[in-house]
Structure formats: structure tokens, C-alpha cells
Amino acid sequence: MNLRMTDQAGHQVTIALNDSNAAKDLVQQKPSQVRIENYSNDEKTFYPDKKLDLGNTPRANAVVGTLGYFAPWGDVCLFYRDFGPAGGLYDLGMATEGKEQISLLSGTTQLEFFE
């Protein structure tokens, strides 16, 4: 499954989701739009409606393009700088297109899930 994120300015990132329970849970929630926010100087974040199921979800070693889930806070994070591992950070997938646009994403962002 893939996820395409497009903000109001037309910045777009496509992510190949992994086969983890957390990624499947995000797909099942099917949010059509989220509010993207900056966090620190290396990632963009948004909050799904419900916490994601972590069963069989690998820990993340976040690099540019990693889509992760930070379980303690319940936010999904998309990295535009290398970050590395962190306690509670899980891997949901990797950007396959538009990595250079991750840092530009902002505000209301459309989410499209597709095969």
C-alpha cells in the first residue's frame, strides 16, 4: 500500500507503507486530510484519530524519508533529516518520491491511500 501526501501549496510526497500492523491501522483509519506541523528541525508530524496497533511493527532507525510512529505521543512523523533510533519510534514506511519536498509540507494536507 502507498500513501500520497499533498499540501495546499502542491508539495507532494509518496510513501511505500510496510506490512506492519501500525501501517495497516493507519490505512484502516483512512484519514483524508491531516494538519501537518513542524517538530524540531528534522520532522513533520500529524496525529491519527486513534493510536496505532504496534503488533509486528519494527523499530525505526529514522533517515530522510522515513515515515514513523512515535508511540508515547501517538503521532506520525515524516523525517526530512536523518534522526536515528529512539525509544518508542516505530517504522511505517519510506518515501519513494518527493523526499526533497518533505521539509516544505505544511498546513492542511490531503492523504491518498492507493495500491
Rank of each mutant, 00 (worst) to 15 (best):
R35T: 08
M1N: 02
T6K: 14
G87Q: 13
A16Y: 00
T45D: 00
R81E: 15
G84N: 12
T109L: 12
E112Y: 01
A95F: 02
L26D: 04
G84P: 03
P58E: 14
R35L: 10
F46R: 04
M5D: 03
L52N: 07
Q101H: 15
P48W: 05
G107F: 09
L111H: 07
L3T: 09
Y90P: 14
G84L: 12
D53G: 08
Q33F: 06
L26F: 05
G65T: 11
K50M: 11
D7N: 09
G55C: 01
D91V: 01
D82Q: 08
E100M: 00
D49A: 15
P58R: 10
D91G: 02
N56Y: 12
L3V: 08
G98S: 11
K30V: 00
N41L: 08
G93E: 11
G88E: 13
R59E: 14
L52C: 12
R4T: 08
P85L: 08
M1V: 04
Y47C: 00
K51V: 11
P72C: 06
P85H: 11
V34A: 07
L92M: 11
P72A: 05
L111T: 07
Y80F: 15
P72K: 06
L52I: 09
I36H: 04
D49Y: 14
L26W: 08
K30G: 13
P31D: 02
T6N: 06
V76D: 05
C77N: 15
P85Y: 12
S32D: 04
L92T: 09
P48E: 08
A60W: 02
V63P: 00
L67Y: 03
S103W: 02
Y90V: 12
E112M: 04
E97Q: 13
